[in-house]
Protein backbone atom coordinates (compact mmCIF):
# COMPACT_ATOMS: atom_id res chain seq x y z
CA UNK A 1 0.00 0.00 0.00
CA UNK A 2 1.19 3.49 -0.79
CA UNK A 3 0.81 6.06 1.98
CA UNK A 4 -0.01 9.68 1.27
CA UNK A 5 3.04 11.92 0.80
CA UNK A 6 3.09 13.40 4.30
CA UNK A 7 2.94 10.00 6.00
CA UNK A 8 5.65 8.71 3.65
CA UNK A 9 7.77 11.69 4.58
CA UNK A 10 7.27 11.01 8.30
CA UNK A 11 8.29 7.37 7.84
CA UNK A 12 11.37 8.42 5.91
CA UNK A 13 12.26 11.01 8.56
CA UNK A 14 12.00 8.47 11.39
CA UNK A 15 14.55 6.29 9.66
CA UNK A 16 17.34 8.65 10.66
CA UNK A 17 17.15 7.16 14.16
CA UNK A 18 19.61 4.37 15.04
CA UNK A 19 18.13 0.89 14.86
CA UNK A 20 15.13 2.03 12.85
CA UNK A 21 14.59 0.34 9.51
CA UNK A 22 11.63 0.78 7.12
CA UNK A 23 9.34 -1.56 9.09
CA UNK A 24 9.97 0.01 12.49
CA UNK A 25 9.65 3.50 11.02
CA UNK A 26 6.26 2.58 9.62
CA UNK A 27 5.11 1.14 12.95
CA UNK A 28 6.25 4.25 14.79
CA UNK A 29 4.54 6.61 12.38
CA UNK A 30 1.28 4.68 12.43
CA UNK A 31 1.36 4.37 16.21
CA UNK A 32 1.72 8.11 16.67
CA UNK A 33 -0.97 8.91 14.10
CA UNK A 34 -3.47 6.31 15.22
CA UNK A 35 -3.04 6.06 18.97
CA UNK A 36 -0.88 8.78 20.42
CA UNK A 37 -1.32 12.14 18.76
CA UNK A 38 -0.53 13.92 22.01
CA UNK A 39 2.72 12.03 22.44
CA UNK A 40 3.56 12.86 18.84
CA UNK A 41 2.91 16.57 19.38
CA UNK A 42 5.11 16.57 22.44
CA UNK A 43 7.87 14.67 20.63
CA UNK A 44 7.85 17.10 17.74
CA UNK A 45 7.97 20.20 19.93
CA UNK A 46 10.70 18.85 22.24
CA UNK A 47 12.68 17.60 19.25
CA UNK A 48 12.47 20.99 17.58
CA UNK A 49 13.53 22.78 20.77
CA UNK A 50 16.38 20.38 21.47
CA UNK A 51 17.72 20.61 17.93
CA UNK A 52 17.61 24.38 18.18
CA UNK A 53 18.96 24.91 21.67
CA UNK A 54 21.30 22.08 22.59
CA UNK A 55 24.91 23.00 21.96
CA UNK A 56 28.17 22.30 23.70
CA UNK A 57 29.35 23.20 27.17
CA UNK A 58 31.85 26.07 26.95
CA UNK A 59 34.12 24.36 29.37
CA UNK A 60 34.08 20.63 28.67
CA UNK A 61 32.38 20.46 25.23
CA UNK A 62 29.73 17.94 26.26
CA UNK A 63 26.16 18.32 24.99
CA UNK A 64 24.02 20.80 26.90
CA UNK A 65 21.60 23.65 26.25
CA UNK A 66 23.19 25.66 29.05
CA UNK A 67 26.39 27.68 28.84
CA UNK A 68 28.06 25.39 31.33
CA UNK A 69 26.98 21.80 31.88
CA UNK A 70 25.86 20.62 35.33
CA UNK A 71 29.20 19.02 36.09
CA UNK A 72 31.23 22.08 35.14
CA UNK A 73 28.98 24.43 37.12
CA UNK A 74 28.81 22.20 40.19
CA UNK A 75 30.87 23.40 43.13
CA UNK A 76 31.17 19.89 44.53
CA UNK A 77 33.39 18.36 41.89
CA UNK A 78 37.09 17.83 42.48
CA UNK A 79 38.82 20.61 40.59
CA UNK A 80 42.24 18.98 40.62
CA UNK A 81 41.45 16.07 38.31
CA UNK A 82 40.40 16.23 34.68
CA UNK A 83 39.25 13.21 32.72
CA UNK A 84 39.53 13.26 28.92
CA UNK A 85 36.92 11.16 27.11
CA UNK A 86 36.00 10.69 23.44
CA UNK A 87 32.22 11.20 23.53
CA UNK A 88 29.42 12.44 25.80
CA UNK A 89 28.28 8.79 26.05
CA UNK A 90 31.67 7.84 27.55
CA UNK A 91 31.29 10.64 30.07
CA UNK A 92 27.84 9.37 30.98
CA UNK A 93 29.17 5.83 31.46
CA UNK A 94 31.80 7.10 33.90
CA UNK A 95 29.23 9.21 35.72
CA UNK A 96 26.87 6.28 36.11
CA UNK A 97 29.64 4.15 37.58
CA UNK A 98 30.07 6.76 40.30
CA UNK A 99 33.82 6.17 40.57
CA UNK A 100 34.90 9.61 39.54
CA UNK A 101 34.20 12.97 41.12
CA UNK A 102 36.39 15.24 39.04
CA UNK A 103 35.66 17.16 35.86
CA UNK A 104 35.73 16.19 32.21
CA UNK A 105 36.89 17.24 28.81
CA UNK A 106 35.03 15.72 25.85
CA UNK A 107 37.02 15.49 22.60
CA UNK A 108 33.95 14.67 20.48
CA UNK A 109 35.95 12.18 18.44
CA UNK A 110 39.41 10.65 18.16
CA UNK A 111 42.48 11.11 15.99
CA UNK A 112 42.11 9.14 12.80
CA UNK A 113 44.43 9.98 9.90
CA UNK A 114 42.54 7.62 7.59
CA UNK A 115 39.29 9.42 8.26
CA UNK A 116 40.97 12.80 8.02
CA UNK A 117 40.43 13.73 11.68
CA UNK A 118 43.40 15.67 13.01
CA UNK A 119 44.33 17.43 16.29
CA UNK A 120 42.63 20.66 15.21
CA UNK A 121 39.24 18.89 15.15
CA UNK A 122 39.40 17.72 18.75
CA UNK A 123 39.72 20.97 20.69
CA UNK A 124 43.25 20.32 22.00
CA UNK A 125 43.87 24.07 22.18
CA UNK A 126 40.85 24.50 24.45
CA UNK A 127 42.11 21.66 26.60
CA UNK A 128 45.55 23.26 26.94
CA UNK A 129 43.97 26.59 27.81
CA UNK A 130 41.86 24.93 30.51
CA UNK A 131 44.89 23.24 31.99
CA UNK A 132 46.64 26.60 32.19
CA UNK A 133 43.66 28.33 33.80
CA UNK A 134 42.56 25.67 36.28
CA UNK A 135 44.39 24.10 39.22
CA UNK A 136 44.55 20.62 37.66
CA UNK A 137 47.11 18.18 39.11
CA UNK A 138 46.17 15.08 37.17
CA UNK A 139 44.82 14.43 33.67
CA UNK A 140 43.22 11.00 33.24
CA UNK A 141 43.16 9.84 29.61
CA UNK A 142 40.06 7.68 29.22
CA UNK A 143 40.11 7.19 25.46
CA UNK A 144 38.90 3.88 24.02
CA UNK A 145 41.26 0.92 23.69
CA UNK A 146 41.21 1.10 19.88
CA UNK A 147 43.98 2.18 17.55
CA UNK A 148 42.40 5.62 17.20
CA UNK A 149 41.84 5.98 20.94
CA UNK A 150 45.44 4.96 21.61
CA UNK A 151 46.75 7.37 19.00
CA UNK A 152 44.75 10.17 20.62
CA UNK A 153 46.09 9.28 24.07
CA UNK A 154 49.67 9.17 22.81
CA UNK A 155 49.31 12.50 21.11
CA UNK A 156 47.94 14.00 24.31
CA UNK A 157 50.81 12.53 26.33
CA UNK A 158 53.26 14.32 24.02
CA UNK A 159 51.21 17.50 24.10
CA UNK A 160 50.99 17.60 27.89
CA UNK A 161 54.57 16.49 28.52
CA UNK A 162 55.77 20.02 29.22
CA UNK A 163 53.07 20.85 31.77
CA UNK A 164 53.60 20.36 35.52
CA UNK A 165 50.94 17.69 36.00
CA UNK A 166 50.52 13.97 36.23
CA UNK A 167 49.11 12.21 33.15
CA UNK A 168 47.48 8.81 33.70
CA UNK A 169 45.70 6.34 31.45
CA UNK A 170 42.90 3.92 32.32
CA UNK A 171 44.16 0.37 32.86
CA UNK A 172 43.47 -2.36 30.30
CA UNK A 173 42.45 -5.65 31.78
CA UNK A 174 40.18 -8.63 31.99
CA UNK A 175 36.46 -7.83 32.20
CA UNK A 176 34.72 -8.55 35.49
CA UNK A 177 33.25 -12.04 35.59
CA UNK A 178 35.27 -12.98 32.51
CA UNK A 179 37.01 -16.29 32.08
CA UNK A 180 40.57 -16.38 30.81
CA UNK A 181 39.71 -19.24 28.49
CA UNK A 182 37.40 -17.06 26.42
CA UNK A 183 39.39 -13.86 26.37
CA UNK A 184 41.15 -12.79 23.19
CA UNK A 185 44.94 -12.74 23.03
CA UNK A 186 45.16 -8.97 22.64
CA UNK A 187 43.26 -8.26 25.85
CA UNK A 188 45.23 -10.96 27.68
CA UNK A 189 48.58 -9.60 26.53
CA UNK A 190 47.54 -6.13 27.66
CA UNK A 191 46.37 -7.46 31.01
CA UNK A 192 49.67 -9.30 31.42
CA UNK A 193 51.75 -6.24 30.60
CA UNK A 194 49.76 -4.18 33.10
CA UNK A 195 49.72 -6.73 35.92
CA UNK A 196 49.79 -5.42 39.47
CA UNK A 197 51.69 -6.74 42.44
CA UNK A 198 49.84 -7.95 45.51
CA UNK A 199 50.58 -5.91 48.59
CA UNK A 200 53.02 -8.18 50.45
CA UNK A 201 53.40 -8.24 54.20
CA UNK A 202 56.64 -6.32 53.86
CA UNK A 203 54.84 -3.53 51.93
CA UNK A 204 51.93 -3.33 54.36
CA UNK A 205 54.22 -3.31 57.42
CA UNK A 206 56.54 -0.77 56.08
Amino acid sequence: MQFSPLIEELIQALRCLPGVGPKSAQRMALHLLERDRQGGQRLSSVLARAMEQVGHCKNCRTLTEEDLCRICSSGRRNQNVLCVVETPADMLALEQSGVYDGRYFVLLGHLSPLEGIGPEDLGFDELLQRLKDEPVDEVILATNPTLEGETTAQYLVELLAGLPLKVTHLAHGIPLGGELEFIDGGTLSRAFAGRLGFATRKDSDG
Binding site: P113, L114, E150, Q154, G186, S189
Partner: peptide, 19 residues
Amino acid sequence: EATAAPHWLQGEALICALY
Protein backbone atom coordinates in the same frame (compact mmCIF):
# COMPACT_ATOMS: atom_id res chain seq x y z
CA GLU B 1 40.95 -15.52 14.02
CA ALA B 2 43.92 -13.77 15.57
CA THR B 3 47.13 -15.76 15.41
CA ALA B 4 49.00 -13.71 18.00
CA ALA B 5 48.60 -10.68 20.21
CA PRO B 6 48.61 -7.27 18.49
CA HIS B 7 51.81 -5.27 18.11
CA TRP B 8 51.56 -2.59 20.78
CA LEU B 9 53.21 0.45 19.30
CA GLN B 10 53.91 3.78 20.88
CA GLY B 11 54.95 7.27 19.88
CA GLU B 12 56.88 7.51 16.63
CA ALA B 13 56.48 3.79 15.89
CA LEU B 14 52.69 4.12 16.15
CA ILE B 15 52.59 7.08 13.78
CA CYS B 16 54.83 5.22 11.32
CA ALA B 17 52.41 2.29 11.37
CA LEU B 18 49.51 4.67 10.76
CA TYR B 19 51.48 6.12 7.86
